[in-house]
Design a protein around this nucleic acid. Structure first.
Lengths: 111, 111
DNA sequence: GTCAATGTTCTAGTTTTTTAGTATGAATGA
DNA sequence: TCATTCATACTAAAAAACTAGAACATTGAC
């Protein structure tokens, strides 16, 4: 379609629209938090590594929540999507928050 | 007083049962986060100050979520309930987390 | 063009959460 | 005892979130 050129880049939430409640909500789901933990240390992950965690459509949903909250961003390369955390943006808005969360021991994450 | 022994103590979540996802979920609601912010700096607040924010039963619900997640605790004095944050427990489990959240500027909290 | 690989969108069913009215309980003072 | 205050419990309805199957879209290789 004619607008395909504009859709190649996924919508990214402006740093000015990131809000704490949305970020906390995005991080409050065990599966999303697991995804976020896997992106620790500026890691970039392809969706494929999560496919044993959940069905594709469920994964897409969770990644969308993370993107729309401003927690994660995606880089598209061919047919593959590579996800990473918006570490700098989050640090700027909420100093120390992401670090504190990423440092939590796995036993304390969820029941 | 002798009958103090029979006084109902509110259920308190053991520190061993506090989980990050539950804490983040509790903090992800704008009204609950507003309550938490009002408890900053070891403040202790009586429920009454929140009564212009929402109906009593709604307030009770939100306070219960905060208590059950291990974010807040309550001290009962007569008919009044005084709420405060479990600052030390949270700092022990999730170093830096609560501080990071309490330091967020109000404009960045919610839409 | 056709095909396979990779993800998204659409949709619906289920579960969880939020809200708030009403009823109930516990403590206090007259 | 009785009324009052303060807060929780119960209940039901509405809203939001989660899950996942099926269809669709995009890319790259042949």
């Amino acid at each position: 379609m004619w607008y395909a050129l504009f859709m190649r880049k996924p919508y990214v939430v402006s740093i000015n629209d990131i809000r704490l409640t949305s970020v906390l909500h995005a991080l409050s789901d065990p599966r999303r938090l697991q995804i976020v933990m896997s992106l620790k240390g500026n890691a970039e992950q392809n969706c494929a590594i999560y496919h044993d965690m959940m069905p594709k459509s469920t994964l897409t949903h969770h990644l969308k929540v993370l993107r729309e909250a401003g927690v994660a961003k995606v880089r598209i390369e061919g047919t593959q999507h590579f996800y990473s955390l918006r570490t700098e943006d989050l640090e700027q808005l909420f100093p120390g928050l992401l670090t504190a969360i990423l440092n939590v021991q796995s036993e304390l994450i969820s029941h």
